[in-house]
């Protein structure tokens, strides 16, 4: 998993509550055997004018010119500004996989669905909870900016600094912050105990060598 320390990037407004996982990545794409490659189908129903199916050439599909991520101003978006209950719906990890594959590394919202919130951390995405009034202020600052609006998120300091120079503090629990700062997913955490695993194998290979074929 990629580390998340500091990020300065374009933020795009997703100005509606209850964006569910099926909107983030429609269910016909869940049959895929991959966890990457969902990016072109992120928000598929909103992004394109036709109905998407796996295997289509997305570059040839009619684009919805009004959808926020299709506007030139939001090219290269890495941060989403969102409303209440972002990521509700199914427990599958395809939603964070799709966001990540598109290039989104952080989502700022007043609230998130629980499982989605967890799954974000597992996949290197930082979900930031702020009170609704603060989120509203960010939406307004973004809308008022002439240039693409690029805040800086500092996970070490737990702050968001707006291009206007305002500093906003946010909360995130220490373990999750530590893991994200160091790029540790569940596997990464277990791999911190590589020495224990190797020691176990060595001991066990003497006790029960038949469990370790080819180890001489």
């Amino acid at each position: 998993m990629d580390k998340f320390t500091q990020l300065t990037g374009v933020a795009a407004p997703m100005d509606r509550p209850n964006v569910d996982t099926d909107a983030i990545i429609p269910k016909q794409f869940l049959k895929s055997i991959k966890r990457s490659g969902f990016g072109p189908n992120l928000f598929d129903e909103w992004r394109y004018l036709d109905h998407g199916e796996p295997g289509m050439d997305n570059s040839k599909r009619p684009i919805n010119p009004d959808f926020v991520l299709n506007l030139p101003r939001y090219a290269g978006t890495q941060i989403l500004l969102a409303r209440d209950n972002f990521g509700c719906g199914s427990s599958r990890e395809h939603a964070p996989w799709a966001l990540l594959d598109f290039g989104i590394r952080a989502v700022i919202a007043p609230s998130f669905a629980d499982i989605f919130y967890n799954n974000c951390f597992k996949n290197g995405i930082l979900p930031i909870r702020l009170d609704a009034a603060t989120v509203q202020k960010l939406f307004e600052a973004e809308a008022a900016s002439e240039q693409p609006w690029q805040p800086t998120i500092d996970l070490q300091a737990k702050t968001i600094t707006t291009p206007e120079g305002e500093v906003i503090a946010f909360e995130v629990d220490d373990t999750r912050r530590h893991n994200l700062l160091n790029g540790l997913d569940d596997i990464g955490l277990t791999l911190q105990h590589v020495d224990d695993i190797r020691a176990y194998e060595q001991r066990r290979a003497t006790e029960a060598p038949w469990l370790f074929p080819g180890r001489g």
Partner: peptide
């Protein structure tokens, strides 16, 4: 599936 990946990568299960 996430545990399948965990075992493939670490030989262990939590």
């Amino acid at each position: 599936t996430s545990e399948v990946e965990h075992v493939l990568a670490t030989q262990c299960l939590v």
